[in-house]
């Protein structure tokens, strides 16, 4: 028997507290600093990105007027008389986004309702990981899938469809987003308490009525947030549209024709040989800034919706 084992627990605790420079104290002192520095890295990066975007964009607008940028419907950066009207790229981006959402929202929400309200525990255990695998597929693979599988299929169905078109990458971007919408919506629906479902069932509602009239409205904030986040991804999606969408900036809305999105334009210029300091070089920063503003707004909106419409149970 050594002497310390005869001490009461209270004495042991007292004794440990008096060791000022124990490992525990050192950790307590320094961990917050380490944690702060790690968080700081991402904050600094974000500030750096914003600064770069703004500074380089300023160079662009020293040459091209804001009026032309937002007013013109022609985007001809390679002409000898270049024109920089952003609308064709915005239209191309929105076209892709709308097609993607038309695919992703119905399928994503239906999957979420199935998983949360109908699937057995076993089915859920199999299906959720598959959904997550789909979310992990690199977008370049989706791009090839669009160009080599979906486009040929669509060409058979729609005669006269251009090889590069908005429809095929739009659909595939939608497929890419399905897991995101399904999984966030499913989380929102699953967190509606069972007692609320029981209340509805006890009133003689069918399972479908419970799902559509009680669970979906109760989970609405999460569902809308998932849709907005999905849109934000569609707007920012690059590889799929670069590979399968063509490079034809046009302000005319026709999903059967080639388009160019903001992201695809940036890729085109970045891979081309636009010299540093040329107006073409600076134009990608202007487009990039606008893209950044778009997705930022979407994310803020999603945040606001989840907070504003947080359900209380």
């Amino acid at each position: 028997m050594n002497s310390s084992s005869n001490k009461s627990v209270r004495e042991l605790i007292q004794q440990n507290r008096q060791q000022k420079f124990s490992m525990k104290n050192v950790m307590e002192r320094f961990m917050p600093i380490v944690l702060f520095l790690c968080a700081f890295v991402s904050v600094v990066t974000t500030i750096g990105i914003i600064l770069t975007l703004v500074l380089e964009t300023r160079h662009f607008f020293e040459v091209v007027s804001i009026k032309e940028f937002f007013g013109s419907t022609n985007w001809y950066p390679l002409n000898s008389q270049p024109e920089y009207g952003i609308w064709p790229l915005v239209v191309g981006t929105l076209e892709i986004t709308v097609i993607a959402m038309l695919v992703a929202v119905p399928i994503g929400l239906t999957s979420a309702i199935y998983l949360s309200e109908y699937a057995s525990e076993r089915a859920r255990r199999v299906l959720k990981p598959i959904l997550e695998v789909l979310a992990g597929v690199p977008t370049i693979v989706f791009g090839f899938f669009a160009l080599t599988f979906v486009t040929p299929l669509l060409v058979k169905l729609i005669p006269g469809l251009a090889i590069y078109n908005a429809l095929s990458p739009g659909i595939v971007v939608g497929i890419m987003i399905i897991p995101m919408i399904a999984s966030i919506s499913e989380d929102a629906m699953s967190s509606v308490p069972k007692k609320i479902r029981d209340g509805a069932l006890a009133l003689g509602s069918t399972r479908l009525e419970v799902a559509l009239k009680v669970v979906v409205p109760a989970a609405l904030s999460g569902i809308i947030a998932s849709i907005v986040l999905g849109m934000s991804r569609a707007i920012g999606e690059t590889m799929i549209v670069t590979i399968a969408g063509g490079s034809n900036p046009t302000a005319l809305v026709n999903p059967l024709e080639p388009v160019q999105t903001m992201t695809a334009y940036i890729v085109q210029v970045a891979l081309g040989d636009a010299g540093f300091g040329t107006i073409e070089y600076y134009s990608i920063y202007a487009v990039g800034t606008l893209l950044f503003v778009f997705t930022l707004l979407m994310n803020l909106l999603a945040n606001w919706i989840t907070r504003r419409f947080r359900e209380e149970y």
Binding site: V192, P193, K195, I196, D198, G199, A200, L201, A202, L203, G204, S205, E209, K213, V214, P217, A218, E311, E312, Y313
Partner: peptide, 30 residues
């Protein structure tokens, strides 16, 4: 059909996360 004529009140109050009006109107609407 059975549950339409046999109502139930639970141990924990379990209103729907809806307005008071919609809570009551839910059953008749369904």
């Amino acid at each position: 059909e059975l549950r339409t004529s046999v109502g139930m009140v639970f141990q924990q109050p379990n209103p729907f996360p809806k307005s008071i009006y919609d809570n009551i109107a839910y059953g008749p609407r369904v």
